[in-house]
Nucleic acid binder design. Structure first.
Lengths: 140, 140
DNA sequence: CAATCATTGATACAATTAGTACAATTATAG
DNA sequence: CTATAATTGTACTAATTGTATCAATGATTG
């Protein structure tokens, strides 16, 4: 059951290797709860076909995730999200996920020509708004 | 799909370095719309062979364009025209666009359960790294 | 003329992705 | 139950890409 279809959005011009994008997005979906422990991932060939990449590229991503104990790949069986990800892994993942997200954000801002000062200021402002909004919400 | 052939006219007696001519003509074709953001450029070897020059000369041109953020070169993958920010965007639009980008970033971080402190710290760290990297690059 | 510097070329390297054969497991036929 | 085929991940290699380094060349300058 649970024919959950793994949906990944690759950007072939982003400068990030395909396998890295696959790794990042699977990590992100796990942190985010879209993927859960025990879930089966598509086979390397199925996902590769879906993404229109070579299956070795997917295999490489899976191997990286496997070495990080995030998934468990079993020859002849398939690939699964690790049942009980150790807390230090999930915390590490959380941090990495934020780091990843932040880098993407800063790179994008830089690409659009914004300065370090502008980015810094905008983040400060936005965080302030965010905190205020959260405050209001918490007061209910 | 889009097998656009990049056609450059080199003048070997002009006194202008080959790599400069390549840089200029690619820039020119971009301005004139012959090349568009996302377009893939020929490989350094293919273009070099086409122009009958050493591929390092093309690589040098590509590197200059890459540093100018006009193209994005990716080892093992290829070279692409980057999505350039239209220079004629007003400052207001610029700010709005950064604001929007930042909101998306913060919302995503929030959705992933990060605290204001974590986000703030991560942005500071990432900006620092970014600035250092830029510095090194500028010093060469 | 000699020294220096920019340009170009030669060569080796590194990163990414693709191709091919193989091994482990599971499903199926008899 | 056993044999065989199908499915899955693995390992190794090859091909394609850009990168780094240094040497050769040729022009410029003192």
């Amino acid at each position: 059951m649970s024919e959950k279809k793994l949906t990944l959005q690759l950007d072939f011009h982003s400068g990030l290797p395909i396998y890295t994008q696959i790794v990042n997005q699977i990590q992100s979906q796990l942190v985010n709860g879209i993927l859960k422990p025990g879930d089966q991932l598509p086979t390397v060939r199925a996902l590769a076909s879906d993404l229109r990449v070579n299956f070795n590229t997917v295999a490489r991503a899976y191997r990286i995730l496997d070495e990080a104990r995030i998934i468990s790949t079993q020859q002849g069986r398939g690939t699964y999200i690790t049942e009980i990800p150790p807390p230090e892994v999930t915390e590490k993942l959380r941090k990495e996920s934020l780091s990843e997200l932040t880098q993407r954000y800063i790179n994008e801002a830089y690409r659009l020509g914004f300065s370090e000062r502008e980015v810094s200021q905008m983040v400060r402002d936005s965080l302030k708004l965010w905190k205020e909004a959260k405050h209001v919400k918490d007061e209910e």
